[in-house]
């Protein structure tokens, strides 16, 4: 086989981490600028020494992506919040009410993300959009593994409480 363009290690990394990084960046800067942030991340990767980066590639990518995304967000006057109104295309084929309820709950959970303290929110995004391990999250956020566990635990509890509170409010209103 002649050398294919996709054989380059950066392109391999791209195919593996493109989607998680886009998810992560979207949550921080919005979908419009996420692609720029991710592109930048990989452009920086191009200038790295493969041997040095590869052992902790995922943590490296997310660290760079995070810094870049936070830069972009700082520059932006108006932050496109994660809870951007109905960014999610509504279901064209509404299923049983269960599915609808679940979607509604999902929307609330995502909406509640913005109410979390910054560190917790970051940990949640790295975990659930990037699927990083505790160890990797600890590396990116510069903290300890046990602290990551604590941040996530607290964050998820808060998210659930937030959603339940909303549930009660709607119930009260509908009465």
């Amino acid at each position: 086989m002649p050398s294919e363009p996709t054989s380059h290690w950066v392109l391999l990394a791209l195919s593996r981490y493109e989607a998680p990084l886009l998810r992560y960046a979207t949550a921080i800067v919005g979908s419009a600028q996420a692609a720029d942030v991710v592109q930048d991340t990989f452009l920086r990767l191009c200038n790295q020494d493969q041997a040095a980066v590869e052992p902790h590639l995922r943590a490296w990518l997310f660290t760079v992506c995070r810094n870049r995304a936070l830069d972009v967000r700082r520059d932006k006057r108006h932050v496109e919040s994660v809870a951007e109104v109905d960014e999610i295309m509504p279901d064209n084929h509404p299923g049983p009410s269960e599915a609808l309820e679940r979607r509604e709950a999902m929307r609330r959970v995502l909406g509640a993300l913005d109410t979390l303290p910054e560190r917790q929110r970051e940990a949640v995004l790295l975990k659930f959009s990037g699927d990083l391990s505790y160890q990797e999250i600890a590396e990116v956020l510069g903290t300890s593994v046990s602290n990551v566990g604590f941040l996530l635990h607290t964050a998820l509890r808060a998210l659930r409480e937030h959603v339940e509170k909303k549930d009660r409010e709607t119930e009260r209103r509908s009465r």
Partner: peptide, 15 residues
């Protein structure tokens, strides 16, 4: 829900 919700709003690949 977090996984799914975060995935849904993001593009799957770079333009």
């Amino acid at each position: 829900m977090l996984r799914e919700g975060l995935a849904e709003r993001a593009p799957k690949e770079l333009p």
